[in-house]
Write a protein that binds this DNA or RNA. Sequence first.
DNA 1: GTCTATAGCTAGATAGAC
DNA 2: GTCTATCTAGCTATAGAC
Lengths: 185, 185
Amino acid sequence: MGSLKVEDDIVMEKLFEIFRSVGYDGASMSGLAAATGLKKASLYHRFPGGKEEMAHAVLDYIAAWNQSKIVEVLLSSKPAAKRLNVVLDSINELYDGGRLACILRALSHGTAAELFRNEIATIFQTWVAAFTYLANDLGHKPEISERLAESTIIRIQGSLILAQTMQQPGILQSALNDIKTDFLI
Amino acid sequence: MGSLKVEDDIVMEKLFEIFRSVGYDGASMSGLAAATGLKKASLYHRFPGGKEEMAHAVLDYIAAWNQSKIVEVLLSSKPAAKRLNVVLDSINELYDGGRLACILRALSHGTAAELFRNEIATIFQTWVAAFTYLANDLGHKPEISERLAESTIIRIQGSLILAQTMQQPGILQSALNDIKTDFLI
DNA sequence: GTCTATAGCTAGATAGAC
DNA sequence: GTCTATCTAGCTATAGAC
């Protein structure tokens, strides 16, 4: 005991959980320290830039998840309908079936709005591009594909807000089903 | 000069602006005081419960706006299509064409999540009920009407998030147009 | 790499004069 | 009803021992 290093991945997961649940302004160094099991000074050792650097690290972490679980799957060579199902399942899991908020939304408000806007916008663009690609594969016309992709992000974000404030997680599943229906013509 | 009372309506408007733009945790008493033009002690005189009471007051204010600009219009005796247009215009104006965030979302995260969930959920329910009523009037089947109403809230909330992070306010207008199309069969 | 201890500041909140 | 002045608690951030 004492100076046994806490695993980077565990720290990232905990930071991710806190930011997503209380937001950027709602997260305090004390709270982040308690959640990770590290003391404040140790967190500053890993992230000299403090809270802002931690949030950037979490966004990098999410961008990587996004790349492997969404983009690479949607651009793979499996049957298009299969790709869609796998990705929607991953999304459902990411948000624990509608019970958990989206980290991108959590880092979009207050002080965080300007700090992380570019990174978040990039992630959204990546989603739209990947879903557009899938829609094309499924036989939609190009101009329809992009609208469908954008509508997918919109409905996921909107249904998450509603699911959480109404405490009806199923609202996310309904939205994911609607999305599936729209893609499969 | 000195003890000239600042108008209640102006104070409410300013509190509304601050909470919507920086969120609950992002709003400080100093910032709220500066925005309203009052000193902190004066704000506490009007709102002994501090920030929490101010946010409740803002939600009451919004609920009233909602009642007069959304519910009463949707339940009025004008032609149904006309009602829809008027309401969508009001919504577009409320969010300054996609440039401003939704106060309900701003008060849905962090510390605020549990504090105001019931009030926010009630407002959402009011919207769903009113849009459901309109959809029925427009000839949709009852089970379709409620799905359409819920989808309306979802798409407005989702498109606002996207509009602001992408800094493309037009995303809201596109969503409102899609909504209009869906209602008018 | 982790810790204890602490500096310096700003938060929310109150007392009391006018 | 508004103000100045102030309190305490919590915040971000750092110094320095192990």
